[in-house]
Every structure is written in structure tokens, then in C-alpha cells.
Nucleic acid binder design. Structure first.
Lengths: 132, 132
DNA sequence: AGTATTTATTTAGCTAGGTAAATAAATGCG
DNA sequence: CGCATTTATTTACCTAGCTAAATAAATACT
């Protein structure tokens, strides 16, 4: 395996695991938090809007939303178009998200803090360059 | 989610999916190929050697090896230390791996080709810098 | 209006990672 | 020696991605 890919995959797994560790105190998993944060910023969204935005396949989102609904973080509401379901944050989520967001932002800052802003930009550029 | 992490995760998933696409013609998945390639370079290894080298937890390797054994790519042999299992490439694997390796190297080259060697080094350095 | 196609979501089932705990063999020590 | 601890592997079960196919509603076409 190309060492560059190996390093990329490994760092990706490592960061996800760290994120999950931090989120444990809030009884959340990284993928769940990603969706909650997305809804927090964009307001209510349909399932399709969510998976297109997060660049993930629909079934992954269906499963995650079902779990988040069970746990009381989101509500599924029938849209005007009866095919679509609109996903909204619950009052519980609205109440608890700010403090969670704060801990996660701190974590991300710590994780990425050794890189200057220029290095971060450079990193993104190099990522984009792969498979041009 | 920090856009840098988002981009990192997404590229990681994207490359894995592409790899799987290429490997489909050989009836292999990326994780299986990773292990076969590892054995091809290092020769026979115990399970522990494999998971420590690949930086993955043991159960993931157990499952992958079981599958590879079923498919005839590897053999599990009892070690002198009766606790450990030594994993070896089968003659079938030895025969077929060279051509597979060639197609994968071509794929990796294509994937990473837009980056100069210096950029690749720079990318690795930036990756390492995260969570110093 | 009636039918074919598209679109949104879900279901089923796969790989691939993780943790926690079970099992079995080897090692260390009183 | 006998027993506790360590080490290697496995099992069970969870999240998290994927594809393929099912379902149901909306839209397009004739």
C-alpha cells in the first residue's frame, strides 16, 4: 500500500476514534454529531439534503437518523411532498448542542493546532489535488 | 465539522471506494489486499504481527484472515508457540499477486500523480503534524 | 385520464473498523 | 509444583460506510 494512502487512512481512523472518545461523555457517536451539527447550522433538512451535503449514501443517513430519533435528538416530519421526510432538531438537542459544540471545537482546535492557517490551507489544496 | 476533517474523511472514503472498484476484477476488497500485500513483502506473519504492523485492532484481522482463508488466498498454520497462528500466502496467492500488485500500483500512481514528490512529502509531514 | 419514469426513503445484506470479554497457551513466582 | 498473570486469538456485538433492490409518492407523456 502506498505509504501516503496508508498514512491518510490511518489518520482518518485515528481522528474518528478520538472524536468518538470525546463524544462519549455526551452519549453520541461521530456520525451522529456530524448530522446534529449540520442541522444546527442549516436548520431543518430533508434526508436527501443531508446525505448530499455530507456526501454519503442515503441508507447511512436513514440509519443514523432513526437512531437519533430513538434517542430523542431529532424529529422526522412528513414534508408537503409526501415522499420526503423533514428532519428537525428536538428541543432537547437545541438545549444541549451548544455545550457539545464547544467541547468539539476545542478538540478540533487541539487536533489541528500544530498547523498554521497556511499549512491547513496547503493541506486542503494537496487533498484536492489527489485524483484531479 | 472542521472542513479540514471533513475533507480528510471524505477523501479517505473516496480513495477506499476507488480501490475497491479496481480490486473488484480480482474479487478482492481493499482490506484483504492490504493484508495480502503485507504478507507478500514480509513473508509469513503471525496475526499479532499483522495487526500491529497495519495499526488495526486484532479482531478486524481475525475476520479478514478467516475470509481470505475461505477464499484460498492464505493458510493459517499453528506456530511453535501454540497460542499463535502463522499466516502464509497460498500458492494461488503467490501466483496471482504480481499482476494484481501491478494494477494497484498503476491505480495509486494515477491517484497521486497530480502531486509532485515534494508535495507528497509535504502532505505526509502535514498529516503527521496533526495531534503532535 | 392512464401509464411510464423519476425521485425520496427504506430495507437487506455486505465490508471494515471499534470495544469488551472469553478461551487457551505460555510465563513468572512463591 | 501450583497458581496468578500475561499474551495470542477468537467471539459477540456495536457504529459506519457501501450497493442493490423494494416501496411510495410525484411528475411527465401520450
Amino acid at each position: 500500500m502506498n505509504p501516503l494512502f496508508h498514512a491518510l487512512f490511518q489518520k482518518s481512523r485515528y481522528i474518528t476514534n478520538c472524536l468518538n472518545e470525546v463524544l462519549k461523555q455526551h452519549n453520541l457517536y461521530s456520525s451522529q454529531w456530524t448530522i446534529l451539527y449540520c442541522l444546527h447550522n442549516h436548520g431543518s433538512m430533508t434526508l436527501t439534503q443531508i446525505w448530499k451535503y455530507l456526501n454519503v449514501e442515503a441508507p447511512s443517513i436513514t440509519r443514523a437518523i432513526t437512531r437519533l430519533e430513538d434517542l430523542g435528538w431529532v424529529l422526522r416530519i412528513d414534508g408537503e411532498d409526501k415522499r420526503e421526510k423533514i428532519v428537525t432538531l428536538s428541543p432537547y438537542a437545541e438545549e444541549h448542542l451548544p455545550v457539545i459544540t464547544k467541547t468539539i471545537l476545542a478538540f478540533e482546535e487541539e487536533m489541528v493546532g500544530a498547523l498554521t492557517v497556511e499549512e491547513q490551507q496547503q493541506f486542503m489544496i494537496l487533498l484536492e489535488k489527489m485524483k484531479g
